[in-house]
């Protein structure tokens, strides 16, 4: 049995200790916003915040998630910057298939929270762990700059 704190609420789950956080979120807590893309921390589709740090939930064993504050895309609108990211993403028609965007939104929210006026280099260093097969990178960059320039 493991108790994890997700989006401000404690949840106790009876799962093997090596079950990745991603699958606990998706299957046990029915929070399907975090996506499975590679299972090896290569694509970033599963990105959640663990104590505010973007973390690949697909490789984090549930045993390692205990005792940490986990935030998923479902609750990122509770943060002002999370909301701004979601709004800018919509305004600029960032998502295409949209499958990677939960992870992109989580990574961008963390970046802008930590750095309110990121340079292109900062964006590259923060966002290059998230693959978008539809190639929405240019719009992601534009949206991050737009938020930084106009709203932060």
């Amino acid at each position: 049995m493991f108790t994890i704190r997700v989006n401000g609420e404690d949840h106790t789950v009876d799962v093997p200790e090596d079950k990745p956080l991603l699958w606990v979120l998706r299957e046990d807590l029915k929070l399907t916003g975090s996506k499975y893309g590679c299972g090896q921390a290569l694509c970033g589709a599963c990105t959640v915040h663990v104590d505010d740090q973007p973390t690949r939930s697909c490789v984090m064993p549930i045993s390692a998630a205990e005792g940490h504050n986990i935030t998923t895309v479902e609750a990122i609108d509770q943060q002002q910057i999370g909301r701004l990211v979601q709004q800018a993403w919509q305004e600029l028609n960032v998502p295409q298939c949209g499958y990677c965007q939960s992870g992109q939104v989580m990574a961008a929210t963390a970046l802008l929270t930590e750095n309110r006026s990121p340079s292109d280099r900062d964006i590259d260093e923060a966002m290059s762990g998230n693959i978008c097969r539809c190639g929405t990178y240019a719009r992601i960059r534009k949206a991050i700059h737009k938020i930084a320039d106009e709203q932060l």
Binding site: G33, K35, Q90, V94, P95, Q101, S102
Partner: peptide
Amino acid sequence: QSKQRKDAAEKVNGSHIYGIDVD
């Protein structure tokens, strides 16, 4: 007209249901 995608909101808040999310 360059309209905003109808599915954009759901695709940025995790609520959009893909096949993999069916339960």
